[in-house]
Design a protein around this nucleic acid. Sequence first.
DNA 1: CTTGAAGTTTACGTGAACGTCAAGTATACA
DNA 2: TGTATACTTGACGTTCACGTAAACTTCAAG
Lengths: 127, 127
Amino acid sequence: MKRIGEMTSEFGVTARTLRYYEELGLLSPVRTEGGSRQYPPADIARMKLIERGKRYGFSLEEIKEMILLFDKDRSGRVQLERTIRYGDEKLEEIDERIRELEDMREELTALRAKFAKKLNQTEGGNG
Amino acid sequence: MKRIGEMTSEFGVTARTLRYYEELGLLSPVRTEGGSRQYPPADIARMKLIERGKRYGFSLEEIKEMILLFDKDRSGRVQLERTIRYGDEKLEEIDERIRELEDMREELTALRAKFAKKLNQTEGGNG
DNA sequence: CTTGAAGTTTACGTGAACGTCAAGTATACA
DNA sequence: TGTATACTTGACGTTCACGTAAACTTCAAG
């Protein structure tokens, strides 16, 4: 159980940010008798998910959905099937993103080669 | 050379968005005699870059930097070297992102398997 | 040459994701 | 038990990325 200060240094965010995430239902710290927040391991795992989600341009609302997906202990058949379908969708999205990134990678590599060649031709020249 | 209306339908954005991008220096349409915007092929390429950049959570400012990288006809030696170094950094970022996405993929797949197993155990049972 | 759709500038509005006080309370340590 | 540091709850402010409305102009078709 970590206090808010430890969380801020661990994740490089401000206390305001952690409280805001709690306000949105992304985090669920418990409280000490005095009222201070105590973040359980689950919240640390959630923060890692949030970090990643943000890097990929998801809104906090979308990230919340994902957290629910990872979190919920779904027991009903229908719920399970629904979860699996949702997960499959996310998998496809991820695959699509990987493909795109690989395309970008190729483009950048080609561009790099072009510049490197140009640099060789400029060898001994001036700026 | 496309007009703003064609651009909006092609990219699924509003005219306001295109004008905003222009305001930030991301697009550079020319004008008709009357003052209407005409988007050259270069701006279409830029829009594709913008689309991707946004999907990966980059700010428009960051995207602008990237556009400059893809755009500029750098001729000086120092400029070229700088560009190549910048490109290498971006390449590393992309690789890192691909790795992360592959991790997420694995996690999701494992989760899917877990749910599928649970679903089999629930076979014929109820919620 | 009219008419309606499409485009223009100007300017204020908005939602997301926090930043930044202020004023009071908890916690840790000598 | 004092006190420095950490934490609390408001509540208003700010930046980004546009939305939206008003008032006007240009463009394409008949």
